[in-house]
């Protein structure tokens, strides 16, 4: 049981790390939000599952935390994306001649 928990914890840490790496590597704020949100959400969920395998009696609070992360993280990133668009930031394009919305 604890080995499975350790593996989930490790996978969670890897995804959190990849999310942070995506934040550094991506060229504009929208792509940073994309890589950041997805990686950190699944990373946090995986850590929660890992802790559950170590401590099954904490399940109730872990469920509350998981639902909380699942609901707030996409809302937060959508609202930042909308603010970024409102402040006049335009998405990065590979080719110069493509039209924007």
């Amino acid at each position: 049981m604890t080995v499975i928990g350790d593996i989930f914890l490790l996978v969670g840490a890897v995804f959190l790390c990849l999310a942070a790496l995506g934040m550094v590597r991506m060229p504009d704020v929208f792509n940073r939000i994309q890589t950041g949100t997805k990686g950190s959400t699944l990373g946090a969920l995986s850590v929660l599952i890992g802790v559950f395998f170590h401590h099954p009696d904490w399940w109730a609070k872990l469920v509350v935390l998981a639902v909380f992360v699942l609901v707030t993280s996409p809302v937060g990133s959508s609202i930042i994306a909308r603010a970024a668009l409102a402040t006049g930031l335009r998405p990065w394009h590979q080719a110069e001649d493509e039209e924007t919305v």
Binding site: F15, L18, A19, L21, G22, R25, M26, P27, D28, F30, N31, Q34, T35, K38, G39, T41, L42, P91, W92, H93, Q94, E98, T100, V101
Partner: peptide, 23 residues
């Protein structure tokens, strides 16, 4: 969600920009 994460992870670790974004 799980598919999304592997997809994003692949794009992040690929050298160069493996993206073609649009709104």
């Amino acid at each position: 969600l799980i598919f999304a994460n592997f997809d994003v992870a692949r794009r992040v670790v690929t050298p160069g920009m493996a993206i073609r974004p649009a709104v």
